[in-house]
Amino acid sequence: MSVHSGPSTAFRIPASDPAPIAECTTLSCEVGAAVTAPAVIAAVVLAGLAAFLAFAYVRDAAEAGKREQQRVLAERDAFETFADRVAALDPAPSGSTASGIDGSMAAVRTVDRSTDTGDVRLRRVLAAYRDTVMSVPHYREEYDETIPESLAAELGSDTATALASNGTLSAASQSALVRRSRRAAEARSSLADAIGEEIDALRALENDLASVDRRRERLLEHLDGVSGAGTGAAIDVWERLEDLERECDEIAADRQAALADPPMTPDAAVDIEGDHAFYEYLYGPTDGPRYPVLAQVSELAERIREDRDRVASRLAGSR
């Protein structure tokens, strides 16, 4: 596993501030321009607009991260257990090979615990691998590999070849199996930690977005409670909503910087490459957006812009 920082790609929430009329730069002119859009003219009341956003993108991403972290930890535990079981075996005497083994990969293709054919040490190694690494709940869904395919992919093709060639568990093969299994477990542990960092970041970002949304909701509730034209209050709310939109821009910029500097770039346990490989690995297989935080920020910013347009419409109706 290695840490890799990819190049930064700017993310900007599309601006939709009211376009000023020529020769006019006052707030009232900006408000007047905002209400020229048909969609804004049709929505002139604020009642019912103060609903909280659900932040489903971020919450679903955090849940997906938790599920993947559990899978990775299950694999880590499986490799650790496999390493312990292999380490406890007695290797074959130096220079010995098992009889009846032709040296082909067929020797490690299946394990039949109901028979005594083949070398007992080899059968115990393969049985241990099948009962640990290949028995994690998601193995068939995620990998669905045979024993030699999995051994080669996880512990190196030379390891599987050595087992097949010797037809037994030599001291050298035992040492390699134990060492590489523990390395695979450590890689999973590092990956699980990185996923945990991302989950924590998502929770923090959800809190930040919820804070913005609560302030948005309170501003609209306050304006709903103002009697009469409430021109001054409406202008103040319009400006404060603009500040909230700017805050969304800042959250998006911070997240984009984080995307360029992920907790890690998976390589040993995940076959994905690219500048955003870590996030592709986590969110690529999900049904949600590839970049859930940026999608969520964009949604909140759009809601704020709609609120500002409706406030502007209210101001226009009071003139």
Rank of each mutant, 00 (worst) to 15 (best):
A257L: 14
T231E: 13
A233V: 14
A229I: 09
H222W: 01
V226G: 09
L259F: 09
L244I: 07
L244F: 01
A252G: 05
L223A: 14
T231A: 15
I251F: 04
G228F: 05
C248V: 04
G228Q: 14
A257M: 03
R240D: 08
E250V: 15
A233D: 11
A234C: 07
D224F: 02
D249I: 02
Q256S: 15
R246M: 11
H222P: 01
A233S: 15
D254R: 08
G228S: 11
W238H: 09
I251P: 07
A234K: 01
I251W: 02
L241D: 03
G225W: 02
V237K: 00
D236P: 02
W238Q: 02
C248L: 01
D249P: 04
R255S: 07
R246E: 13
Q256M: 08
I235V: 14
E247V: 15
E239G: 05
Q256K: 01
D243L: 06
G225S: 13
E245G: 10
W238A: 04
L223P: 11
D224K: 06
L223I: 09
E247Y: 06
G225C: 09
I251V: 10
R240W: 00
D224P: 01
W238Y: 01
Q256C: 13
L259V: 09
A234T: 10
G232A: 14
G228H: 05
A258K: 13
A233M: 04
C248M: 04
S227V: 08
G232P: 05
D236R: 13
R240K: 03
A257R: 09
R255P: 02
D249K: 13
A252Y: 07
E245M: 02
A253H: 11
V226F: 03
G230P: 09
D243V: 11
E245R: 08
Q256R: 10
W238R: 03
A234Q: 06
A257F: 02
G225R: 10
E247A: 15
T231K: 12
A258R: 12
A252T: 06
V237H: 00
D243N: 12
A257T: 03
L259E: 14
R246N: 13
E242L: 05
L259C: 08
A234H: 01
L259M: 06
S227K: 12
E245F: 02
D236H: 04
D236C: 12
